[in-house]
Each structure stands twice: as structure tokens, then as C-alpha cells.
Simulated scan of single mutants.
Amino acid sequence: MISATVSFGFSLDAYSKAKKQGESTLTNAMYAMSRSFSLLLACLIPLFYETYAYLLAVSVAMISVQFFDGFVGVKVKNTFKTIGPFATAAGNGILLILLLLD
């Protein structure tokens, strides 16, 4: 849920900056914002409705997002934006494995 909140925050920032740029940039930012908001909502559901399969699906989705965010960090040559997402994906992956073993 923390990662989804951060992702949504970045998309809001991109949207506010894109309003000053061209229409294509604004459209891309709106798509990113809608997807980030949807992931955030999906992460909130397990707080109110407990289901193992849903938690597993959301966990895999967010670990994938974090993993691919790490490659974005590599592309922009930013150590923090590379290590942070990869470490978060690894940590969440370990926790997911522990959940599956339980």
C-alpha cells in the first residue's frame, strides 16, 4: 500500500507539471494517474475485506510495479530510484513467500 501511495503521489506531481506542457504530455500523465489511483484502491481493499487470493494477486501486482520501477531508475541513472524499488520488490517478495509458506 505504501508503494501504491508513493506511485500515486508521483503521478499527481507529473500531472501538475504536465498541465504546463503539451497536450500529449498531459494525456500520458492522466493515464499514469488513473492507473496509480486504481492500484491504490486495489491495495486498500484487503484492509476491509480479508481474502487470501486477493491479497496474493495485489501483492504480485505491486511487486511487479516495484520491480519495473527499478528498471526506470536504471534508465534515468539514479541510484536511489534504482535501489529503492528493487529492494522494496525483493523485501515484498520475501514476505510474500513467507505468507505462501504459512
Results as ranks from 00 to 15, higher is better:
29 A>N: 01
100 L>D: 01
25 T>E: 08
78 N>G: 08
97 I>M: 15
61 A>V: 13
73 G>E: 06
36 S>R: 01
15 Y>W: 05
19 K>E: 09
99 L>P: 00
97 I>L: 15
102 D>K: 07
75 K>G: 05
51 T>S: 03
31 Y>L: 05
29 A>E: 00
77 K>H: 15
21 Q>S: 15
83 I>R: 14
23 E>L: 05
33 M>I: 01
57 A>R: 13
20 K>W: 03
88 T>H: 06
16 S>I: 03
5 T>H: 10
60 V>W: 02
5 T>D: 05
30 M>Q: 13
6 V>W: 06
61 A>H: 04
78 N>D: 15
64 S>P: 02
42 A>N: 05
93 G>W: 12
3 S>G: 11
60 V>E: 07
6 V>C: 08
77 K>D: 14
2 I>P: 03
50 E>P: 01
46 P>H: 02
25 T>S: 08
14 A>I: 00
14 A>T: 00
98 L>D: 11
27 T>L: 05
98 L>N: 14
94 I>L: 15
61 A>T: 08
74 V>R: 15
55 L>H: 03
56 L>W: 05
84 G>Y: 09
69 D>V: 01
75 K>E: 06
4 A>E: 11
10 F>A: 11
76 V>T: 13
45 I>M: 05
85 P>K: 09
71 F>C: 04
76 V>G: 11
10 F>K: 11
62 M>C: 03
70 G>K: 09
40 L>S: 07
70 G>C: 12
43 C>K: 02
27 T>H: 07
56 L>R: 08
53 A>E: 12
82 T>D: 09
16 S>V: 04
48 F>M: 05
96 L>A: 07
46 P>N: 00
44 L>I: 04
59 S>H: 00
89 A>C: 13
51 T>L: 00
99 L>V: 02
12 L>W: 06
83 I>G: 03
39 L>D: 15
91 G>D: 06
81 K>G: 09
27 T>K: 14
38 S>M: 14
23 E>V: 02
27 T>V: 06
30 M>G: 01
51 T>F: 01
29 A>C: 00
22 G>Y: 04
47 L>N: 10
96 L>P: 04
79 T>Q: 13
56 L>I: 08
29 A>S: 02
37 F>R: 10
19 K>F: 01
91 G>C: 10
52 Y>V: 03
10 F>G: 09
3 S>I: 12
93 G>Y: 11
60 V>Q: 07
11 S>P: 03
101 L>Q: 13
76 V>E: 15
87 A>Y: 15
37 F>S: 13
8 F>H: 12
18 A>W: 03
77 K>M: 14
34 S>N: 12
50 E>V: 01
17 K>M: 12
96 L>F: 11
58 V>L: 05
31 Y>E: 10
90 A>G: 12
73 G>S: 09
49 Y>W: 08
37 F>D: 06
95 L>S: 10
11 S>G: 05
32 A>P: 00
81 K>V: 07
73 G>W: 12
56 L>N: 12
21 Q>I: 04
67 F>W: 15
23 E>C: 00
59 S>K: 03
71 F>V: 04
86 F>G: 09
38 S>D: 08
24 S>I: 00
100 L>V: 06
46 P>D: 01
60 V>F: 13
34 S>T: 10
2 I>M: 04
32 A>H: 02
6 V>P: 02
41 L>C: 15
89 A>Q: 14
96 L>M: 12
89 A>N: 12
10 F>D: 08
2 I>G: 02
62 M>N: 09
64 S>F: 11
57 A>F: 13
71 F>M: 07
